[in-house]
């Protein structure tokens, strides 16, 4: 079978830059992402990977370059050139953002069902029974016991909070999901469960994902492609196994060789 027909990329990033003002930030980031791909962004602290994700997610405004996103309707929009209303609408329908700390991505005083149902209510859902049924369905899919639908996230473990955050994002059927170290800070067994869940959801839902992680094992498990960042720049990119098994750049070689095997 020949390569897939020339499908347009879902996300096109051109010469993206951000300057924090002290000489740090990111610069010269270029890449394209096609539907169904999982792009891992790896690097150590200060590499710029989280800055890049925040630029993609709209929490930071670029100092240069642009981010083009192809909507479900087929229209290509510059994410930072959109009217605020349209940007927010995209953010709660087609886009998802999973924060490293689930408490940043949840309403802590709102029940699990309310958290999951919010995107539906924010886009016009007005039938309590159906909203609740959708929330129950999603809790099941992220392996949260459905009986906890009325409990607030403060009563959940870290791993459950993270799964709740994922459900809250996925309920609107987003096409592009950004994840910031989604397994960071979780116990190893909890991490394994979450990774397994993410792998399954990405495959079942055909999600396109950009996942930032410092854990190369997570990158290998979830990502099809990798970008290695250092000092605010992308210093190497390619297929995940290319970058991890045949690293070209000196820093990548250092990174790969530094990982301890279990």
């Amino acid at each position: 079978m020949t390569p897939p027909p020339d499908e347009a990329p879902l996300l096109t990033v051109e010469n993206l830059a951000y300057d924090y003002g002290n000489g740090r930030g990111v610069a010269g980031v270029d890449f394209r992402l096609w539907p169904g791909e999982v792009l891992g962004v790896v690097g150590e602290s200060g590499s710029g990977k989280t800055t890049l994700l925040k630029l993609l997610g709209g929490q930071l405004v670029p100092s240069g370059g642009r981010i083009l996103y192809r909507t479900a309707a087929g229209e290509v929009v510059d994410l930072h050139d959109l009217p605020e209303g349209k940007r927010r609408l995209l953010a709660r329908t087609e886009l998802g953002f999973v924060h490293q700390n689930p408490r940043d991505g949840l309403r802590l005083a709102v029940s699990a069902g309310g958290n999951v149902g919010e995107r539906l209510m924010a886009t016009g859902a007005r039938h309590y029974g159906r909203i609740r049924a959708a929330a129950e369905d999603w809790l099941g899919r992220v392996e949260i016991e459905q009986g906890r639908i009325d409990d607030i996230p403060a009563t959940f473990s870290g791993g459950m909070q993270q799964r709740l955050q994922i459900a809250r994002n996925l309920v609107s059927g987003p096409r592009l999901v950004l994840m910031d170290e989604p397994t960071g800070g979780l116990d190893v067994s909890v991490q394994a469960r979450l990774l397994d869940l993410l792998r399954g959801l990405v495959a079942d839902l055909g999600l396109t994902v950009v996942i930032v992680t410092h854990d190369l094992g997570v990158a290998r498990l979830l990502a099809d492609r990798l970008m290695v960042m250092q000092g605010g720049r992308v210093i190497e990119e390619g297929l995940t196994d290319q970058v991890l098994d045949d690293p070209q750049a000196p820093y990548t070689q250092l990174l790969v060789s530094s990982v301890l095997a279990a």
Partner: peptide, 10 residues
């Protein structure tokens, strides 16, 4: 400004 009232419905 945006008529963004989902949070009240929640």
């Amino acid at each position: 400004a945006l008529g963004d009232y989902g949070v009240m419905q929640v």
